[in-house]
Nucleic acid binder design. Structure first.
Lengths: 181, 181
DNA sequence: GTCTATAATGGGATAGAC
DNA sequence: GTCTATCCCATTATAGAC
């Protein structure tokens, strides 16, 4: 893990910068400076700036799709519990990439390359809401979803402790025994 | 409210675009097109693009400061309850502006003009966490804070219903009778 | 107050040497 | 694979007419 290829370095630096400053807020200059190479080298390894973003999102998006597929056959309560666990796990493994898929950066979700992500995040949100069409449950699911994604970018706590904290807040926010007052 | 000045129109359109596409993702062209004027007109009313942003943030930031000041003399439990109510109220009145202050757009918080905002969001976060230095409580507060700010941008529900939903999820996530397992 | 025209800068991307 | 040099375009901002 110590010796990595230039290509991997580019992805690492780009993920970090994109998560912190946004896609538009990060220039190829910035990434190249972080990597220690020229802009031209970036564009030797990737066809375009968009291609770097697409590469970053790809693996995370695929796993999100797998998670959503796993939830489908479950009943509402089981799907909700599995969605919380699976989502927290996924976000912790793709901290910076997660922010690009769903992290207060709604603009990218409207671009064609990300069109297939919208149904996935919607499905995850529905599962987190316990498949309820209650407006309050949907809002809570969205708060948890976007909140967790945003928080993990900068949080550098011990992963085990962080996971426990995220699972705790998600469960408290989403699973409530009495329907509501 | 129907007939507004060009200046107010600029602020309205800019807030909308900034919230949706980010500061860097919004050009003066975009704003001018939305307003129905030229770029030069924008820069007649405001000294720069930054000045538009600063104007948008100003009122919301001032009220955030007032909220934090009101929390200070309270004990932990009362401050937490007041922070939840005050924060939800504030965010609902400054939906789009809130995203600029604290909405997955951490880059602006590092700019000089926003330096005084960091202590305020930190203080609010501490109050939401019940002034506990428990890592889990701090994480929960951050999740609720960033989650709510992100969600209200696009949510066009009935404000009363939305407020109830936000208060509900915030209280469940943050106020838990038994410390934790 | 609003416009057109025009700097001046920085962005993404390409060409070609090494 | 990596670089320097360059191109083209979008962007912010200014100048000056109306």
């Amino acid at each position: 893990m110590v010796r990595v290829s230039t290509r991997d370095e580019i992805l690492r630096v780009a993920a970090e910068r994109f998560a912190h400053f946004g896609y538009k807020g990060t220039s190829l200059q910035d990434i190249a400076a972080g990597v220690g190479c020229s802009k031209a080298t970036l564009l030797y390894h990737f066809a375009s700036k968009d291609a770097i973003l697409a590469q970053l999102v790809e693996a995370a998006a695929r796993e999100l799709g797998e998670l959503v597929a796993r939830l489908e056959p479950l009943d509402a309560a089981a799907a909700q519990a599995a969605a919380i666990d699976g989502f927290v796990d996924l976000v912790l493994r793709y901290r910076r990439e997660a922010a690009l898929i769903y992290g207060g950066i709604p603009q990218f979700l409207q671009e064609p390359a990300f069109a297939d992500l919208l149904p996935l995040t919607d499905a995850l949100c529905a599962a987190l809401a316990g498949r309820s069409d209650d407006a309050s449950a949907c809002v809570a699911a969205k708060v948890v979803l976007s909140g967790i994604v945003t928080v993990v970018i900068d949080e550098d706590k011990d992963p085990t402790e962080l996971r426990a904290a995220l699972l705790g807040v998600a469960r408290r926010a989403l699973i409530h025994p009495h329907e509501k007052d």
